[in-house]
Design a protein around this nucleic acid. Structure first.
Length: 647
RNA sequence: GCCACUUUAGCUCAGUUGGUAGAGCAGCUGAUUCGUAAUUAGCAGGUCGGGGGUUCAAGUCCCCUGAGUGGCUCCA
């Protein structure tokens, strides 16, 4: 019997029923057949060797497609497992999926412990198996047979996984000496795999559950060409150069001290300058948008957090309370600003005519993050949120939400963040008791967020179950140099705190009403934002944000007087400038300024002194030739104006 | 918090099977007064993260602990 196969260009070809993706590829070209890794049949990605029995719309995937990489990496995970099993008989297997960059397998090594020193051994075994050109064979298995197989093999994790699967949907994949419970799809055989690298090793809780056993997770990656692996390793090296912890040290932005404490950053003068510029930028935007600044203390009475509910939820995992000479009196370092802001709202009666009220504060907060969570400036124990709380009527929520998004977009634009994802975090529908607040209010809030995202046509990801305990939220996620995702800006609707603090306003009906609260922080925290910005720009900040916008470099001591005159002129024009009067050669001064990534280097010597000019050199771009000092000032002003747009 | 690894001068790193520490850069002093990514000579700088143990002898081996890194869990 013949079947009709529709290709992506909508052309239709006839094949014998039971043909396979691989045969279809061969009919198109030998080259394609060599490179193809998986096939999408209607809406499912299949093995290339799985028979197609009915009419179908298909698409072939190669290494260039995410689906092709997935098939290869998933197959690689099986191969690694096989290699490990041969080297360490008796190990038990958890799960081993493909991921964004490569694959991993969770393995229980029992009492044996392995380290990255063992990687070479495993890689060699892996390559040995690749050379055997093992086929990946799909087999449909009944549930009892599957349970029996893994029970006999004493793979208890697989047996547990089988419990959640329906009979009739269970498939095994066999390759060489290794059989795994797996949905597929896989490569036809191991031959496309040409290079392998095991990357790192980590503990991972079985099924992501902290209370269960920790397995050993081995991460790896494979490529169809040796060269691809080399390129990938070079890319990783390049990414390391952009690491904000390295750049923060090199550019003299921030540091940590064991004596001050883990996760408590110290901002150096240049870092503090950058941070202050960011704050000024946002303050200006917020002023335009109708925010009013407030200032709160760094601690709050325990009753404040009992009222807010944070004490009950986080009291045990916080920095320990501060006690006073009064027995029993306790204060907490503030872990968030909202309760304080609620009290400011409550300080006077509010009318519907006052709303929305937007209270803004760069508020420093302290959270006792678990020791293993600390990470450079992105996850710290003391940080400053560019926080604000908007108190408004339920009708105003949507507009306020939009207003906040405008500010976030303004920031992302000024700093050239294009690659971000908006994550909308909703309730876990199956676990509603986890959350504070009424069903009705949650539904209302979630609806408003989804509508605004829809209207703005943002690149969104909706994640049920990720909401904060008090309300749904919208987070702006940006990746660091190694592709790890970090939350920067956040907007969170909160129907809960107004309830707990009994916030009210008088409506036009002369009745008391409850306002809605919106938490928002466009940067997220100054610390994390600077970190991600560093990785994003590799430390090459825009001119408006550079701690030093220019540095004057006199050729020799003879020109110090002129250099100081230039310095003064620029200073008077509000250009952040410094001078290098060290007894060094021009080449050395330039090198050092380049390493500090100062945007403009102004070389001054005899020629400049005579003509009233500066020799302008742009960081990364080289010598731009001489400019009159006034002209240079204008160039910088124009550039800053262009970078900042309307603001 | 959990798993693995790392921790030597301000920074980046060497230190063989245990035999009481070394380089480059930075710093200081001097010479040099120099034109677009490192002038040169000399000097100084470390109780090898901290504590305990084994040993005639510990940077090196063992135990506890701090900090960092990669993940897991968590992230108000």
């Amino acid at each position: 019997m013949m079947i009709k196969i529709t290709l992506p260009d909508n052309s239709v070809r006839e094949f014998q029923g039971g043909t396979t993706g691989l045969e279809i590829a061969k009919s198109i070209s030998e080259g394609l057949a060599r490179n193809v890794m998986a096939v999408k049949v209607n809406n499912e990605v299949w093995d290339l060797t799985r028979p197609i029995l009915t009419d179908a719309r298909i698409k072939l995937f190669t290494w260039e497609d995410p689906e092709g990489k997935a098939a290869m990496w998933h197959s690689s995970a099986h191969l690694m497992a096989e290699a490990v099993e041969l080297l360490y008989p008796g190990v038990k297997f958890g799960i081993g999926p493909d991921i964004e960059n490569g694959f991993y397998y969770d393995i229980d090594f029992g009492s044996h412990s392995i380290s990255s020193d063992d990687f070479t051994k495993i890689e060699n075994k892996f390559l040995e198996l690749v050379r055997e050109k093992q086929a990946f064979v799909r087999k449909e298995v009944s549930k009892p047979d599957a349970v029996k197989y893994f029970t006999d093999k004493k793979d208890e994790y697989k047996v547990e996984l089988l419990k959640d699967l329906e009979d009739g949907q269970i498939t095994f994949y066999e390759s060489g000496h290794f059989t795994d419970l797996c949905r597929g799809p896989h490569l036809p055989d191991t031959s496309p795999i040409k290079a392998v690298k095991l990357l790192n090793i980590a503990g991972a809780y079985w099924r992501g559950d902290e209370t269960r056993k920790q397995l050993t997770r081995i991460y790896g990656i494979t490529f169809p060409k040796q060269k691809d692996l080399q390129d990938y390793l070079v890319m990783l090296e390049e990414a390391k150069k952009r690491d904000h912890r390295k750049l923060g040290k090199e550019l003299e932005l921030f540091t940590f001290s064991q004596r001050v404490g883990a996760g408590l950053p110290l901002w150096l003068p240049r870092g503090a300058q950058v941070r202050e510029l960011l704050e000024q930028f946002l303050k200006k935007a917020q002023k335009k948008a109708g925010y009013v600044p407030v200032i709160c203390p760094h601690i709050g009475h325990v009753d404040l957090y009992k009222t807010s509910g944070h004490y009950q939820k986080y009291g045990e995992s916080s920095f320990r309370p501060i006690t006073t000479p009064i027995p029993g009196e306790e204060f907490f370092l503030k872990p968030m600003n909202c309760p304080h802001h609620c009290e400011i709202y409550k300080a006077m009666p509010r009318s519907y005519k006052d709303l929305p009220i937007r209270l803004a504060e760069f508020g420093t907060v302290y959270r006792y993050e678990q020791s293993g969570e600390l990470h450079g400036l992105t996850r710290v124990r003391g940080f400053t949120q560019d926080d604000a709380h908007i108190f408004c009527t339920p009708d105003q929520v949507k507009d306020e939400f939009k207003g906040v998004m405008d500010i976030v977009m303004l920031i992302f634009k000024a700093l050239d963040f294009k690659d971000f994802v908006v994550q909308i975090s909703l309730r876990d529908p199956g676990n509603k008791e986890k959350y504070i607040g009424s069903d009705e209010n949650w539904d209302k809030a979630e609806k408003a967020i989804l509508e605004v995202a829809e209207e703005r046509k943002l690149n969104t990801v909706i994640v049920p179950g990720e909401a904060a305990f008090y309300g749904p939220k919208m987070d702006f996620m940006v990746k660091d140099a190694l592709g790890r995702k970090w939350q920067l800006g956040t907007i969170q609707v909160d129907y809960n705190l107004p309830e707990r603090f009994e916030l009210e306003y008088i409506g036009n009906d002369n009745q008391k009403h409850r306002p809605v609260m919106i938490h928002r922080a466009p940067f997220g925290s100054m610390e994390r934002f600077v970190a991600v910005l560093l990785e994003h720009t590799a430390g090459n900040f825009p001119v408006w944000l550079s701690a030093d916008q220019a540095i004057v470099l006199p050729i020799s001591e003879k020109f110090h007087d002129y250099a100081k005159k230039v310095l003064e002129l620029l200073n008077n024009s509000d250009i952040r400038v410094r001078i290098d009067v060290r007894n060094e050669k021009a080449g050395k001064k330039i090198r050092d300024a380049e390493l500090l990534k100062i945007p403009y280097m102004l070389v001054v010597g005899e020629r400049e002194e005579q003509n009233g000019t500066v020799g302008v050199r742009r960081h990364g771009a080289g010598d731009l030739g001489p400019q009159k000092v006034e002209d240079f000032i204008n160039i910088v002003r124009q550039e800053v104006k262009k970078e900042l747009g309307d603001l």
